[in-house]
Design a protein around this nucleic acid. Sequence first.
DNA 1: AGCCCCTTTCACGGGATCTTCACGCCTCGA
DNA 2: TCGAGGCGTGAAGATCCCGTGAAAGGGGCT
Lengths: 232, 232
Amino acid sequence: MNRVLVVDDEPQIRRALRTSLEAHGYEVQTVGTGEEAVIGAAESAPELMLLDLGLPDLDGTEVIRRVRGFTELPIIVLSVRDAQQDKVAALDAGADDYVTKPFAMEELLARARAAMRRAQPGEPPAPTMRFGALEMDLGRRLVLLEGETLRLTPTEYQLLEAFATHPGKLLTHQWLLRKVWGQGYGTETTYLRTYVRALRKKLGDDAQAPQLIVTEPGVGYRWIAESTDAES
Amino acid sequence: MNRVLVVDDEPQIRRALRTSLEAHGYEVQTVGTGEEAVIGAAESAPELMLLDLGLPDLDGTEVIRRVRGFTELPIIVLSVRDAQQDKVAALDAGADDYVTKPFAMEELLARARAAMRRAQPGEPPAPTMRFGALEMDLGRRLVLLEGETLRLTPTEYQLLEAFATHPGKLLTHQWLLRKVWGQGYGTETTYLRTYVRALRKKLGDDAQAPQLIVTEPGVGYRWIAESTDAES
DNA sequence: AGCCCCTTTCACGGGATCTTCACGCCTCGA
DNA sequence: TCGAGGCGTGAAGATCCCGTGAAAGGGGCT
């Protein structure tokens, strides 16, 4: 069934995760080092990787980078509380999401389901997508809100495209800046604040109770709208 | 069967792509430089080219441009860079699609199928088309407005043809300039302003309340007229 | 050569867009 | 409890882009 690769150097945590995951129908494989993690990802081809950052042999971001060299399988990072810097680095390296230790197993399972659902095949080149009242046609570069075409500036559109093509994934400040403004940018978070604000306004989203773009303080933003995959 | 030309300077990636593609029934040829890519495209006449952008000898867009000089075969670009400008540059040069490394093989195969399917069936854009009071005969190079033949200069006609054969799609400045004036152009937006203006004038369109050509600030223009597909 | 038409180039507002700054609020940690 | 940093908000200045009008080049035809 669904194979999960758990990477953690602490045997107790490996055991706890194995128990909980198997109770929910996952097939679990556990390893304790970064080297084993890369090999395991290649040979077992799991559907999900849960990766602890504090490994003895390799840096967590290095593991992510190597795994990303050959597969896009969802990677959820588990990190300790005070390692904000490492979490951002891990996400920038290509992780899909992170969960802070200690964590509620319910939350981890929910994020795992979301990450795997997102990774499912079927809709990579979606020419047109829909999120409730919002409709996007990437090929035509058109955005409609409740049927009305929305006027977006070039920067606003690129930012929206970056969000909508990575639903549910936590996107770091640096990742967004590089994607929209180009490499060379990465620290100009004021740009993001300004344009996220403009987007929220035009899309009718509220920063205090967001339905579309959620702020992840200190890290980045996340597009949380469900793709309501409608067809003509 | 279906021949694919893989262009990448890293032997591991060449090998990985060859394995996956052959497993799906493609006949694979691999090369490692841009020069070989152009030669291979000419001599083997493959049905698809997978082109890595970071080649040692030639710039990726240069490869695309040269190949486009003699064939329209589908080209899918593989790149580690994800910045919008790189993507636009490759697509403007004539690439069909763009996949960011690392990528899921499933997605690449899906895009490959889509690109080849698109290239297959010829839908030679209707020899004659109509947009309200505007009628065009592409074969005869004739344009009629309310029954009267319109006098268009060669440049004006080419621009109109570029618009009318891509209804609803946003055409970037660079794309239009390359299409009408030829490759080598791309920054001369004043040309566009002049000729779009001339076209609007002759077609009776108003820049402030356009019915035919909408300007998309900072990006390009869009032909928004509905094709009222009438018959003789 | 002279003329005409087409192409290319320049200059000028006006408006939209991008960039930057300042302020208040909230959260987190000392 | 207090200070620092991050975020949302609002706004202002600089900059870019477009439409408009017009004026030089340039090539072909008479």
